[in-house]
Design a protein around this nucleic acid. Sequence first.
DNA 1: AATTAGCACTCTTAACTTGAGAGTGCTAAC
DNA 2: GTTAGCACTCTCAAGTTAAGAGTGCTAATT
Lengths: 344, 344
Amino acid sequence: MKEDIARRREAILEAVVDCYIDSARPVGSRVIARKMGLSSATIRNVMQDLEEEGFIMQPHTSAGRVPTEKGYRYYVDSLMRLRRLTEAQKRNIDSEYAFKMKSLEDLLAKTSHIISMVTGCAGVVLLPKTEYSHFRHIELVSISRNKILVLLVAGSGIAKDFIIDTDYYIDSDTLDRITKFLNDSSYDMTLDEIKDHLEARLRAERDYSYKIIEQARNIMSSVLMSHIESKLYIDGASHILVQPEFSDARRIKAIIEFLEDKERMLELLLGDVREIGTRILIGSESRVRSLNDMSIITSGYRIKDNIIGRVGVIGPTRMSYEKVVPIVNFLADTLTGMLRELEV
Amino acid sequence: MKEDIARRREAILEAVVDCYIDSARPVGSRVIARKMGLSSATIRNVMQDLEEEGFIMQPHTSAGRVPTEKGYRYYVDSLMRLRRLTEAQKRNIDSEYAFKMKSLEDLLAKTSHIISMVTGCAGVVLLPKTEYSHFRHIELVSISRNKILVLLVAGSGIAKDFIIDTDYYIDSDTLDRITKFLNDSSYDMTLDEIKDHLEARLRAERDYSYKIIEQARNIMSSVLMSHIESKLYIDGASHILVQPEFSDARRIKAIIEFLEDKERMLELLLGDVREIGTRILIGSESRVRSLNDMSIITSGYRIKDNIIGRVGVIGPTRMSYEKVVPIVNFLADTLTGMLRELEV
DNA sequence: AATTAGCACTCTTAACTTGAGAGTGCTAAC
DNA sequence: GTTAGCACTCTCAAGTTAAGAGTGCTAATT
């Protein structure tokens, strides 16, 4: 008996959320009454209970109900039924990936594009600092008297380039030998390990001259200092603007502003880089003011069982979680697969 | 006599444009009358003439006048008085650049950020394909059986990385020798020149084994094929959204959509990469629908007297050209200066 | 005891009305 | 050639109204 009632409450909450998600307007008791074969008065009674418990609310007396964050949370945790991707969607995604990707950067940018296309939300791909990934190759190219271009290749073909300053000129021959030394001594270590062991290795070293070792030390510490930055790919922000909740220009401005603020975006997304599985933040759970009625869904992608980054979406709280969550997961898997192909 | 009248007409046009730019609303005859010490009736007469000739227009009977594109064009070409940057602005820019830039990419991204901050428009920096720039160094890193990571360094520290497929496995020793061969044979040539001369050089080569030359040929043609893509840095799109003309959500959406469409943006900006000096496109001159009442101002930045890219803004047609044009030019110069520092 | 019909009530929304204000074009006077 | 004056037009914001949607409560029904 009691369980039946509980189940009905859930069904009604689910119906409210579903309806609201695809109509974008408060749902009244009649709509649900029709769906459930009960009278609207009965539904109203249940709705009153749900409202008291904070799952739904009325924007004003005599409007229908709208899910609260608590309502969405319950829906996401217990009620929604994830929808498998349609064959058409999969084909669509595959065909987008079919264009040859020339670099990791291309691949990630493309992914954020695809994800925004398929979900209608803003697509986000995060590639965190490579501190934890494996050192594969370093190359030093002298580009002026006291500037050296460092090309750093980590596992799985992630390459970064940056410029460091040196105090004095290093001739190309010396540079070659430093390069060789660094490559030989650090292969397959993580940057963290390199940091820890470099000093000892330098001191133990006998094959190279003092001068070379000294310079290698300087260069490598510059490399470690200029900790390689996280990268963020965002695409399709314009998609979310078609939603009726963004008819207010000021809201739009706030959102676009936030999406453009790389620093704060990183802060937000880096928070749970290593989290396993799907992460769903609803509305204020993100603790970001301007993302008040936005939700964030991300999933980790991996290289060799290590989560190295996140892919996901940012969209209105009123997004189709049932549809978007599986897509985000699918793309995290796809990306993981593509990275495996590159793997050493 | 006649000249005096002509001059007055210009002064009135200028006043209309100036007023409209900073008030965002149609300019009436009274406002201008006060400024010029003439009666509003007189001004009205002149305005009627200007309207007949298409320099200004009325949004509706009994509103003030608004500049047409033709009016803006005349203003920009003949009337405006560029404003020097204030010391505060210069200091502001310098301090933004003070943070150490780790790579060319950082530098360009930073520049687009700065330009958007200072102008209140969306900042744009274009780095075109490096076809024309000088080859400095190539590095090949094997990352799997048949994938090679190519690191390509062009003049001034522009580095690009991308992955190419090979038909068969190349051992690391051979790879080193191919690398050496390519570096020796192509130093300081442009990719175009390399394309033209590679074949001849390969045939003439005697120092390396047939196999190495054959593989070098394959790799290099892959490098040339996967023509390195243009890059585009856009920042501060949200700034332009505060302008009153963007109170309509649909317009906002159209603009954001266009700014996110890298392909079309490139098409638009690549059109006049090599154009010398400042380029100003007003409204429909850009031939892009969704940029109907937007203007684009760009200026080329150089390395060794060659224009290698463009920096500029996209903002509402009603932007302060007098203020923005000098800023764009200033940043083009600053960027040129910074690149000279990196120069070999 | 749970469900439902019925009804009064509330609140939003869109359409219409209205009046003030801004600005014009024209004419006649300076 | 310039200006004062005036009738006219159009927008914009404020106010009014009526329709519609949806509620909460009460009383009747199962």
